[in-house]
Nucleic acid binder design. Sequence first.
DNA 1: ATAGTCACCTGAGCGC
DNA 2: TGCGCTCAGGTGACTA
Length: 270
Amino acid sequence: MPELPEVETTRRGIAPLVEGVRIEEIIVRNPNLRWPVELPAEVAGQTIERISRRAKYLIFELQHGSLIVHLGMSGNLRVVAAGAAYRKHDHVAWRLASGSELRLHDPRRFGSVHWHAGEPLSHWLLADLGVEPLGNEFNGAYLRAQAGKRRAPVKNFIMDARVVVGVGNIYANEALFLAGIRPSVRVNRLSRAAWERLAQAVREVLLEAIRLGGTTLRDFVKQDGNPGYFQQSLNVYGRQGEPCRRCATLLTGCRIGQRATTYCRSCQQN
DNA sequence: ATAGTCACCTGAGCGC
DNA sequence: TGCGCTCAGGTGACTA
């Protein structure tokens, strides 16, 4: 489900409800997520000092280490009253001293929960990640340098987490539309100006999606149970065969890197 | 090193 | 109503 805006929306939603609160107990109802959930007993009793984000990972910074949570394709985190009935696919629950419970709900179980005693960014899942798209190092020159002599389609490249993190299938399609770049173009064929437009478009689309609370396609809900509203702003994703909002040309669909791809053959010519 | 493919899992939607 | 098929917001591991 979640790309960077949905993860950030989740972080902002739960932060005021969990920061500074002690974890009384962690209940692992089903450890069979993407990786087995194995949490040492010492996690209970610690206070959540801060919840931060790196890429699509949420980092619960505790007193003596971190919980690193990924929501996979279908995960969400919500804070509910302690004792509320479990729903199907509520796999992990944090019983909090505030009397609430934080719950990880993830039908497809592509999400994960890791305990890491050291510096969180040194965890193997986080160690080799590329730059944050909303950070200072991310710009056209950086993308161009990273592309080097590579020949991957630009859509694959922009979704490569070793280059830049947080850009999933929805926002890759949307950013390429905003930048006027065809998703299939090989990265060694893009001009300086195109890279600059793309960096700007990625930043713009992510910020706007965060502002609107993310994109709700099927089941994403914010921590308060409400959906995000960015789906109403989608220009191309999921709109194959429908008219381009800018020029009314019918949008073209194809698959790039096994993922559904939609673009306007008129507006996106590089 | 890079590009492309596969796998993990459940649920929704569609055609028949 | 049911069956079988396809597809879905991610990403590590594998193959050439």
